[in-house]
Write a protein that binds this DNA or RNA. Structure first.
Lengths: 370, 370
DNA sequence: TGTTAGCACTCATTAGATTGGAGTGCTAAT
DNA sequence: ATTAGCACTCCAATCTAATGAGTGCTAACA
């Protein structure tokens, strides 16, 4: 059997109708609202075919049809192909310039959640290859040093170091010089034991400090994948969709949103695969296509964002299978544009804002616009 | 009418029974399981009295009785009085020494949630009066300075400052000296315009830098009450209690847990009032006693914790009114002991661990025990 | 006077039975 | 190829009756 034009139109109508109502849709409904002037009987025949082909299914004999995962998939693919052509028309999102990326991210999920009425999530960016840029040891008290480590993306980390014996200003200066000359511009992978031994040798009595600093560096430069920041919003939106709001399903979904670790896993995966479908970077998972079994009754749309400077993260939207894909995809595209607007223009500034969990940095040039 | 001993026993039995089952409890049940050898008829009379006094109520004519808020209140007050006498026997909680307080807090809510089967939340500590301890400006690049600001609790903040004209090492040293001598030991309230003007004068051409630094200081020292860290866990536990898991209620509760801002508000309030009931620092809100209308169908138990060094925060447990108060109170007490164990012994170390949102600090003396 | 047994009554819950209607599949006519 | 018509299916909503846990009250009892 072949999926001719008419079948496609009917399928599309069925899906759109189902997206709105959430109820199985019958032949008569289609016959009325579709542009095709066909009687319900004809539609029935077509629907019968569509069912045979696996695009729609019947919850029970003699109820209307609902789209199958395969049906959704066809619809979404088609939809996204169309969307690719259009230039997304950007309604202005109310993202204000805030002083920390963390805030922006929180804001983004919130806006997105209230815009779409689905649950949303976003992961903070990661750096591919983080290089050391600057190290500074300062003496805070007799036996305590403060190490400040700055990496290329201006990710910062502070750490106190206890020292056994006092160190004078001159020695500290030398130590700083040593650390900076030796380690500057390196990634964690490039620091080897040889170098460390070498440095320890040169540092003399303060070799233990070098060890501590290197440890701190390792930490700063390779931030825990484990507690990569994830923000979620609109979890309660799930309750707006009856098919998801029974106690068991809702519990499972909200649990999934709560388990940040799993969430990161899912979103990370999405980000990678996004390379497949070029152009948009938007991925749609329908039902069982999802990497996580918990989400088998939902759909999830993810998009990876890129703030330049190697900063990449992922946004996700979680909703029922009968999600308004069109709106969601639009929103995500719009969001990308917005983020670019905010962060894209000045590379330096962008990167500056980005020390997420690790540090609080305020906008260097405070252009107020509240 | 008077609340004699027998009535109290009966009330307690009713409540305990209801805590377990969640079902209205009838006279016959009480007559069987209570130690008092009384017939159901007698119990009925007593129950009738208790109802008249407002301690219990009937969902509808001819169903068993359930405790009213007033009944719970009596029970909880009595219970906590008892508990105060006992020394809580501490089952070892699986809190490991982690390297960041943030992790500890996250862990605590998680453990507590799985221990109690309720939803839990915790706010990070705040400082009452934050004093400046150390300021360091370093040159990162030609036109960029890095300001590191450390306050008394070792709360740290980094901030980049853009400068218009280059500054040489000597000048930087002077600037550092100036800032430290002038501002050291002050709270934000103590820095006045006069001082700033004075400093700007002394700084000469770099007066604008002083301004930026002072701004950064203000930020660091008075961290946003707004985005005080709050962690929640076990939100899905509410689905374990039928009386809370209908779609509307669940949605409202989970929403309440999601709205961190409101949550902080609630918990902050609790912390303050905790002074009333001395000794425990544990507060119980039953139903409408809660400061937030959203929680009117639940109970909430809060405890403020104190890590020394002016570090105070609040833990909260949210569950149905028929919450196992005894267990919850025990758990909270135990937790306090645990937290003290971890953080209490060495003041310095405690405070060190605490730069929560602002900075990542690892344990200065890494006593591994994994 | 406090306690108990017994009885009539209430009312939420449950299971069955009934019905209405939306929808299908099939067939025959157009 | 399309459509009208009819018989059939089955979910969902409504009603009914039965069940049973629980109460309040009264009268008897220690």
């Amino acid at each position: 059997m072949e999926l001719d034009g008419r079948k496609k139109v009917i399928l599309k109508t069925i899906i759109q109708n189902y997206l709105e109502t959430g109820e199985p849709v019958g032949s008569r409904t289609i016959s009325k609202c579709s542009d095709l002037k066909l009687s319900s009987a004809t539609i029935r025949n077509e629907m019968s075919d569509l069912e045979e082909m696996g695009y729609i299914l019947q919850p029970h004999t003699s109820s209307g049809r609902i789209p199958s995962d395969k049906g959704y998939r066809l619809y979404v693919d088609e939809l996204i192909r169309e969307k690719d052509q259009e230039v997304a028309d950007i309604k202005e999102l109310m993202i204000q310039k805030t002083d920390r990326l963390e805030h922006v991210l929180k804001h983004v999920v919130k806006v997105l959640a209230s815009n779409t009425n689905y649950a949303t999530m976003i992961t903070g960016p990661t750096y591919h290859q983080n290089r050391l840029k600057f190290i500074q040891l300062s003496k805070v008290s007799e036996k305590q040093l403060l190490a400040v480590i700055v990496t290329e993306g201006n990710l910062m980390k502070n750490q106190f170091l206890e020292i056994d014996e006092p160190i004078d200003d001159d020695q500290l200066l030398k130590l700083n010089l040593l650390l900076n000359t030796q380690l500057n511009g390196l990634t964690i992978g490039e620091i080897n034991l040889d170098m460390i031994r070498n440095m320890k040798l040169q540092a003399g009595i303060h070799s233990s400090v070098v060890g501590s600093v290197v440890d701190a560096v390792a930490d700063a430069i390779q931030p825990d994948e484990e507690d990569r920041p994830v923000f979620t919003s609109g979890a309660t939106n799930i309750f707006k969709y009856p098919e998801l709001s029974d106690s068991a399903t809702a519990s499972e979904l909200i649990n999934a949103l709560e388990e940040k670790k799993e969430l990161v896993e899912i979103l990370k995966g999405s980000g990678l695969e996004a390379d497949d479908s070029p152009g948009t970077g938007i991925q749609v998972y329908i039902g069982n296509e999802s990497p996580n079994a918990k989400l088998k009754d939902c759909s999830m749309v993810t998009a990876s964002y890129d703030l330049g400077g190697g900063l990449k993260g992922t946004i996700g939207i979680l909703g029922p299978k009968r999600m308004d894909y069109e709106n969601v995809v639009d929103n995500l595209k719009m969001l990308k544009v917005q983020l670019d607007k905010i962060f894209g223009d000045e590379k330096n500034k962008t990167v500056q804002d980005v020390s997420i969990t690790i540090d609080a940095i305020t906008q260097p040039t405070p252009e107020e616009e509240e």
